[in-house]
């Protein structure tokens, strides 16, 4: 699971309506994050800025200690090179293989497993 994917996933439990995003990443073991190096496409990163939930991304990147992002979303036309590099890395190269995604809503706390990089958002009958 790339963090770009994580940036779009909220808790899916029907009754969980608030504070249900971003899901907290609880890593399964030391080696549950891999890096898949790929070529940077700066235009794509700029293009995606308006589609990101910035504070959720920053929060997640900080909690995993993956790099420094500014507090506020940079403007696409005026984004420093180093920020571009961090964004490329955290959005498209970092690959979380095994973890739990935990709903931040304390009344919910539902945990979704990520196994071999695939988040499972399926619910049981009484959660729908």
């Amino acid at each position: 699971m790339k963090l770009l994917t994580h940036n779009m996933i909220q808790c899916h439990v029907a009754n969980c309506k608030s504070h249900n995003f971003p899901l907290k990443i609880v890593l399964a073991e030391e080696n549950s994050i891999e890096n898949e190096e790929c070529e940077m496409n700066p235009d794509f990163i700029r293009h995606m800025l308006p589609k990101l939930e910035w504070s959720a991304l920053k929060n997640t990147v900080d909690s995993l200690g993956l790099g420094n992002l500014p507090e506020k979303v940079p403007s696409p036309d005026n984004i420093p090179l180093e920020t571009l590099a961090v964004l490329h890395h955290v959005l498209l190269e970092v690959d979380v293989k095994n973890c739990q995604l935990v709903c931040p809503n304390e009344e919910c706390n539902r945990s979704y497993p990520v196994v071999q990089g695939i988040p499972n958002l399926l619910l049981t009958k009484d959660e729908v």
Binding site: M1, M8, I9, H12, F21, E36, K51, I118, P119, L122
Partner: peptide
């Protein structure tokens, strides 16, 4: 390939408005 896979019931998918 590098594409992502999410296991979910598409009819119940939440919170992805205008993300693609």
């Amino acid at each position: 390939c590098e594409f992502e896979i999410v296991q979910v019931d598409v009819t119940k998918l939440l919170g992805m408005d205008k993300r693609f």
